[in-house]
Nucleic acid binder design. Structure first.
Lengths: 124, 124, 124, 124
DNA sequence: GTGGTCTAGACCACC
DNA sequence: GTGGTCTAGACCACG
């Protein structure tokens, strides 16, 4: 499993791990029933403390993405893909809401926003 | 000065105060040369620790929005309005970048995003 | 031998196996002298690791329900039925003790408990 | 805050702490808005690692009993009492269901159960 | 002062 | 082998 961790980021390491795994679920790199790397092997692999990996897995389990069996390992849940998709859409929506809020608050023309959006969309 | 603080928000209180002041600069409620409320009176007013107000003012000063005269008080700087406008645009842009990033990452059609934007723009 | 294992249960698998065997002793499906399935055949049958079955049988032997003859197999002991009955009664009692404890701790009326018991008894 | 921890218990320490706090909410020792001891002072007090206390508080927050403010502390939530009461009732019910299940499975007379209940209720 | 995160080990239970 | 819990520190951000 390829996970890049940025120590300088403000985002906590366990959160970065969570996001990476959710992202892999969304891109079908991780499918229903598939085993995640064991917390200890992943910890060794990306040189992060076991407890930090554990926290990431715990939260993923609490949110329904994966399930864990004592002595066996952690597995991708059946509803994980739908969950990830929904979460992702809600995230995009929340950013758009911010954009709308701010542009209204300071009377920025809608077309200006649209142009900026088109520019950013092409530009990357 | 009217500042509403949300304790339940994830945004730190000093950050909420900063944003509110920048927002008032943008809406011309706070103009160049105008005095901000004293740290202690504002602290009392909105029932927030003096330390927290101090941190907000310090950062506003470091970022050029205000300047402080020892023993007199804090004042809105001449370039504050331009600064605030820029900050605001950069903020909108950063949210749009996130939208573009996410929609590309998960193959969401551009038109879907545009429709959602229009809906949110009208809906509120 | 029919044993249903729930992977999602919090109860360890070896414990589930133990309980199922004790339950079959109580219901006379397993009688004194009868042979239990061999560890390997049971493991294959219910798709559980040999180690896990071994642990269940070991504990059943330590508790006196079964005895094992090297190279032959495991057999239900003569006192197994009495043991199982006792165990069962102790289990019911332990649950009732919890009920009494909790209802006293939080001042729940005894009659409320009795009504709930009657309801649950009829309802199922 | 008085919390007794048993190291020999199978129940994890963080779980014991959670239960004790929920119990104090139920008995009105902890009321809405009241501050819980800081994780570090409680850790020192009962000689438990800070991380363990943190885990207990985190779960209590996730379950809605308390809320936490960075740099300030943790406080009992408004709905905590109702939550605790409900949880408690569901717990009693789950034990009673077990009793009913077992007594039916092995044909134990209902009156026998009732007698045992009365005995236990008086006996303590 | 407070909480939030992280480490680098350890010991235990389960498969 | 696997996960579950715990320690005794550390450093950082917030009030």
């Amino acid at each position: 499993m390829k996970i890049l961790i940025s120590n300088s980021s403000n985002v906590p390491i366990y959160e970065q791990i969570k996001r990476e795994i959710i992202s892999q679920i969304l891109s079908d790199d991780l499918k229903y029933g598939e085993a995640l790397p064991s917390i200890r092997s992943l910890a060794k692999d990306i040189k992060i403390s076991v407890m930090t990996i554990k926290k990431a897995y715990d939260e993923l389990e609490a949110e329904g993405y994966i399930f864990t069996q004592q002595g066996k390992g952690s597995y991708v849940s059946s509803k994980s893909f739908e969950l990830a998709k929904e979460t992702n859409q809600r995230e995009i929506e929340s950013y758009l809401i911010k954009v709308v809020e701010l542009s209204k608050k300071y009377n920025i023309d809608k077309n200006e926003i649209l142009e900026l959006f088109e520019f950013l969309y092409r530009g990357e």
